[in-house]
Amino acid sequence: MLIPHPLLGLRDAQEFTYLGDAALIDRPDPEAGEAAFASYVYDRDNPAGLHRELWFHEQGDRSWLVVTRDTLTHEILGAELARNVARTRRAGA
């Protein structure tokens, strides 16, 4: 697989470490309570189709990326720096 790194172009997936659902960016507020954290830690969608997920460019620039992938075809529709995604979400929250 090839990951379209927003700064470095297409890079082979071998250079990356996969984490999973990009919802992990949305860590609950510490005051949100146990149920919110339980959901954050354990509840995952398993979509047949588009999936936003976290990849770490471990053998590269050490950026965490949010990659949008079609789980049915492996087609990758785009990748963003997770840091930018996280900042945007916090600004919007």
Binding site: L19, I25, W64, V85, A86
Partner: peptide, 18 residues
Amino acid sequence: AGAVYRNMEFARQCLWPD
């Protein structure tokens, strides 16, 4: 060592980017 580093980068970039 590798996993802790990765997790700290995750915390830095994804959880507390500011």
